[in-house]
Design a protein around this nucleic acid. Sequence first.
DNA 1: TGGCTAATGCAAATATCTTTGCTTTAGACT
DNA 2: AGTCTAAAGCAAAGATATTTGCATTAGCCA
Lengths: 190, 190
Amino acid sequence: MAVAHVHKMDATNRRPGGRSAEVLGRVRSSVESLIAERGAESLTIPMLAERAGVQPSSLYRRWGDISSLLNDLATYKLDPDRPLTLTGNLVEDVRSWATEIVAHYSKPENAAMLRAGAASAGTRESDCLRHRRAEAAAILEQARDAGDTTVEDLLNRVTAPIIYRVIFSPWDLGVEFVDGVVTDLARTAR
Amino acid sequence: MAVAHVHKMDATNRRPGGRSAEVLGRVRSSVESLIAERGAESLTIPMLAERAGVQPSSLYRRWGDISSLLNDLATYKLDPDRPLTLTGNLVEDVRSWATEIVAHYSKPENAAMLRAGAASAGTRESDCLRHRRAEAAAILEQARDAGDTTVEDLLNRVTAPIIYRVIFSPWDLGVEFVDGVVTDLARTAR
DNA sequence: TGGCTAATGCAAATATCTTTGCTTTAGACT
DNA sequence: AGTCTAAAGCAAAGATATTTGCATTAGCCA
């Protein structure tokens, strides 16, 4: 069979399932546990490989270095495709959205992943920022009472304060914090 | 002279001047230039030592590792003791404060330092957060028309949005951004 | 001025990380 | 079932980073 079909080596030829997925899963949970234990600063590929029961060379070939790996895995941490339950009431929807974000980053390993992602942000467009922007847009889309509130407003008034605390002072982040920013938004947005 | 004065080995016995200061200065500017050139991710102690014309072992002994070093140097980047010229007019003072912060972090090396600091934040209290908080307090202290605006308000409405962009999308940060947050603050704070 | 000593310089020894060539495994397609 | 091949395993070589003991330098204090 000389001239077989010339398969283009496109994404459909990849094999995301099977052994790759197995490795990915093991790496993912190993990253979480290691980061929770010792932070992201001293995390190395060999260390991670050992915990995951995988060859370091596999990780090097797949991600190149630890910061790419962390950045890649951090992307999927707060599922961008998760359903937002929207009622059409701006304040109410923003509140549950913010609560969800805070709950997510209240887990130390998730906060650590965000910080790790932050370290390598600034060059490429950040997934954290992009996803939050998309969600903010979806909320405004559905809102019956959005007034002249913009996506930027939601990022500035809700996401930014939360993320700022997640990074720099995770300990004073809780439901009451969500309450503060949302109440403040409700008081002034129209 | 058998039993000499028993000097306590406290901070007064340190020698921050002279050769140490020389090394510190060289390291500091080397960090900046290297970070501006290649980002903080791949920065290593030997690399830095070579650029600074200093022995790696000196840096290891003084800081232990690269992230401690970066975190330490980042502290002094936006001088916490710089004079804030306060007029007593809240909006005006906030505007110049915000402008100063944006100007500072518009330099890529300063933004990179912040990200590097962010990576190791979350355990100790962050200097970035502490200094901004102190400045916000000073502004409110002087303001004749602060109303019921709080330090937290200024952090949430001004600092957080700026820092969020510095970290995740430095390219869309400029005077017009300052304008946006300050105008928004002026419109709703009372 | 002269001793005292923190901090650095230097260099060798280790420890770790990273790359690379080759082999093996196991999905995917016929 | 059989073939093809992306991805993983393995192991050795190479490159870097880190530690450590000893020598030297230069502030500091008497």
